[in-house]
Design a protein around this nucleic acid. Structure first.
Lengths: 258, 258
DNA sequence: CGATATCTTGAGGAATCTCAATACTAGTGG
DNA sequence: CCACTAGTATTGAGATTCCTCAAGATATCG
């Protein structure tokens, strides 16, 4: 479901597809780390990349796994999470097409990664990618830029988790989804929710019941309306932004969804 | 107060102090980004670095400021925070000697930075540092490694804010401070708290009253004991770790305090 | 079209917050 | 050196938000 609505990401004029050089034809290349390489250098990625398809609910890696690979999502969506020993869970991010994951300069991943929908990823072995980074500093710069943006998003999320009310949390989350949709679709008002209420709850530090009640509150205030439980419309965007704690002048500076 | 107890960080044999090359004599160099440069190259930093001293409570920069500089703390401590329009505040990290801040690939800082104690920092203009990064890829790699570690810490903090109880939050915080002290001091049991209860509350997503009550609960359980309100001892480290949700096998993997 | 998941709503309870009073600490001046 | 003061921390009582448990409604999928 997430997959087909993002087709607009694909450049109108597709690249030549070279059998031995799939990265050259990659639809998300320019959006991800790989975009840092010039066309002629992209083939170097093929030498180290492998591909993987994940069914919904399938794990890409666990928090405790040795962090030996980095990944780029070419299609679908993934959730990242950490758990406490007793099973309480915190989702630290939802990732979509062209997003990057697996950055860990320690030897273990900092979180588990599980597919939300049918997902395909490119896998880059860490050691071989690092060798490539030595050769192409622009790629490393891009990686640093991505990490820096993720850090900023993580801080936004701390503000949300530590200081916002349930309704504000949900409004902030929907605001992010809406910004994201605006960037990638024509209609920024319609939002797909590929994750369950449980996932949203674990992302926002709430229970499913409170998420549901907050949805109902936003409906009652006519800020949003539902088509189906997985698809909704934002009716009153300014009110949504106000609830999310976003000041009007910074509407543009949309943040990635982590 | 934070300052003098960390003197052990300074290598026993001080470097030659060259008047035109203060970075060569820098006590925290090896611990920070600057440590990525070899001794002969360190002088290159002098060309771009300036220094600044901050009084307690003085701002280094505001969330809305143009992000044109990066900083390394040479002494003291700093808190980073974000605010909501109505004044609610979330502290996203406490930083100490040798810590690095200001990374922002957007044009504005993601947070405000304010000195907790008397603090000195090195300031590197962003554009000139980037030029240096092009020349010394090891430095960029180090920066990426720092960013990656901060990201992991940010995710730990999300788990704390979203899913831990007040007592668990405080125990986790004290655990971090204790790990940090163990790395830098001989006695890992004694913890200095250079921040107020208000700062702790804004870091943990609580109120000062709840922080205070949680301290009292930990005292009652004889997990900690106070010397003064700003100085305490951990009595029962295993119990502290258990409350913090840290499994025994991962005690080593101490995380930075962000 | 029915079975199963998921989502929504309700009622009561628990954790944390708010407001208010008291105690402590550190600095100041007598 | 000690009382005084201003700031900070602790404790208490009641209010509020969110959670838990339970029931009912709505989607989704074979």
């Amino acid at each position: 479901m997430t997959a087909n609505r993002i087709e607009r990401l694909v450049p109108a004029s597709p690249r030549d597809i070279q059998p031995d050089n799939p990265c050259a034809a990659c639809a998300v290349r320019d959006l991800s780390v790989c975009g840092a390489l010039r066309a002629d250098d992209v083939s170097r990625l093929n030498a180290i990349v492998t591909h993987k398809t994940l069914q919904p609910g399938e794990m890409l890696f666990l928090e405790s796994d040795p962090a030996d690979s980095l990944f780029v999502i070419t299609d679908g969506s993934i959730k990242l999470y950490k758990m406490l020993p007793d099973g309480r869970r915190q989702i630290t991010g939802f990732l979509f097409r062209s997003d990057f994951l697996g950055l860990a300069f320690r030897d273990r991943y900092a979180y588990s990664a599980e597919a939300l929908s049918l997902t395909t990823v490119c896998r880059f072995p860490k050691d071989r990618l690092e060798a490539l980074l030595d050769e192409f500093p622009e790629m490393e710069r891009r990686l640093l830029s991505i990490a820096s943006n993720e850090l900023a998003s993580a801080q936004d999320q701390m503000l949300l988790l530590g200081r916002k009310t349930a309704e504000e949390k949900l409004a902030s989350f929907l605001w992010l989804l809406s910004r994201r949709a605006t960037l990638k679709e024509l209609d920024g008002q319609t939002i797909d929710l590929p994750m369950t209420r449980m996932d949203m709850a674990d992302y926002l530090g709430l229970t499913i019941e409170t998420v549901s009640r907050s949805f109902s509150a936003l409906k009652r205030k006519e800020i949003i309306a539902f088509t189906t439980p997985q698809r909704m419309q934002i009716i009153d965007l300014p009110e949504m932004a106000a609830l999310a704690g976003i000041e009007e002048e910074s509407w543009e500076a949309s943040t990635a969804l982590r």
